[in-house]
Design a protein around this nucleic acid. Sequence first.
DNA 1: ATTAATGCAAATAATTTGCAGACTG
DNA 2: CAGTCTGCAAATTATTTGCATTAAT
Lengths: 166, 166
Amino acid sequence: MEKGTAARIERLKKNGLRLTVQREVILNALIAKSNEHPSAEDLYREARQKCPGIGRATVYRTLSLFQRLGLVRRLQLMDGSSRYEINGDPHAHFICLGCGRVFELEASPLLGSSPSGKQDFQIFGYSLRIFGLCSKCRVQGQKAPSFDPPGAQVVPEQQPFEQSMG
Amino acid sequence: MEKGTAARIERLKKNGLRLTVQREVILNALIAKSNEHPSAEDLYREARQKCPGIGRATVYRTLSLFQRLGLVRRLQLMDGSSRYEINGDPHAHFICLGCGRVFELEASPLLGSSPSGKQDFQIFGYSLRIFGLCSKCRVQGQKAPSFDPPGAQVVPEQQPFEQSMG
DNA sequence: ATTAATGCAAATAATTTGCAGACTG
DNA sequence: CAGTCTGCAAATTATTTGCATTAAT
């Protein structure tokens, strides 16, 4: 059994949910691949290795369940697709617009104070995604693309455009 | 012509793109509805008022174009759907898990320092979404739901589950 | 035994694409 | 005019759902 599996299965049982082969296989796939931030499809393919008859619907249902249990966290990419990771400490993500890889930023570089007591809102959680180019995708000495000013959430597609207002 | 339209149309022309009725209508719909954070479908319906023959494909293509031009910003909700807003100053969003409304947090309460010089990454932009309940959706005196610890990106669905590891 | 969970296939939903014709510069 | 844009409809993609069957407790 993979590391960390036991406590998580506990959480299933505590809620009167059943432990099935499929759930265990998906959980283990998640644990094994968490830092690769797999898609549902990735997990489906991985799960199939151990459990060939498993269906996509089960993977989606299980991921949704795990999410509600707080076992996994869903991360949405800019293209609308979703990636999953085991729910550990909250952290920010760096998403490379070049290769699409997701990096974890342990220290949450942007976070000054914790999110509480603001406005009239009751805050449960947050998602901080930082977009840019990783070292491999960044060509040395190349200047920052002009199409994507800080604050914009732009995915480059075909040719970048001129943006200056002047 | 709506306020702010002129400068934005400039940006179109600067890039050798054509100004069409459809683009102008969509731009104006965006300017008018920006703080409601409309969906593509919302904008499609709005655009239809002024331009009945417009097709959804045009709305999507135009939004994608405007995004690449830096005119609009796309915000993804937790259910995977997208909302759009005119690209002004970068700011955080508060997304109410109760009613689904999106609020702007001008001051970006979580942001301590600016995102630069970290790791090996070249940072273009970021997206900070905070999830919780707005004042209307929060029942006075009701305790925070147990299903969603800070850092998790969980949408409540049906019954919440117990999460404690103990 | 009960009743939740699964697999399949069909249904959704949101968005994208191919293409012939319409319109802008 | 030339080339960009549009509308339509069909195609994609990711995900959800209905239902009969299987399996966990």
